[in-house]
């Protein structure tokens, strides 16, 4: 090997070693790197009542209930396999709504309800002008109506 090839091997070796070390470290701390637990892991009993953790999932459509005159909200969160009921008192972020993702910080009470102390909204990486989104919704509704009408 020429000296230059030796140096090249050294550089590649260093990158490979660091990558391997990083991979092993991140694998070992997998649970610490995860930003949130999904409802399936909650249903599997991975967290005990009273233990603080973050819960993440989609807000189930039609479950968001606000108590009038207060800042209390209740809703359900799903990962399309399991659901967790959530209670929260406070201001919700702008992107929070039914059918989109959210991450909440808090703990389970004895009945398995998640008592959130903070609720964050997740963005779904989709961008669209409002007019286009409205016409898409209208198109979907029309298609649904047509499908319903064609049935006897």
């Amino acid at each position: 090997m020429t000296p230059r090839q030796q140096r090249m091997t050294l550089v590649l070796g260093v990158v490979a070693a660091v990558a391997l070390a990083g991979f092993l470290a991140l694998r070992a701390f997998q649970n610490n790197v995860m930003f949130y637990f999904d409802p399936t892991r909650v249903a599997a009993g991975e967290v005990k009542p009273g233990q603080r953790f973050r819960l993440g999932g989609m807000v189930v459509k039609g479950t968001l209930v606000r108590t009038p005159g207060t800042m209390d909200v209740r809703f359900a969160v799903t990962d399309y396999r399991h659901e967790v009921a959530v209670s929260y008192t406070g201001v919700l972020p702008d992107l929070f709504k039914e059918g989109t993702g959210m991450v909440a910080d808090g703990q389970l009470d004895a009945s398995g309800r998640f008592i959130a102390t903070q609720v964050l909204a997740k963005h779904d990486e989709k961008y669209m002008p409002p007019a286009l989104s409205k016409s898409l919704e209208a198109g979907k509704a029309a298609a649904a109506e047509a499908a319903a009408g064609s049935q006897p």
Partner: peptide, 23 residues
Amino acid sequence: WWNSLHQAPSVMKFGKPTMPASM
């Protein structure tokens, strides 16, 4: 790789960007 709060890329990825041409 992990559950994260940050969304997945809209443009810098393989496949179609999740954004109309006007944006």
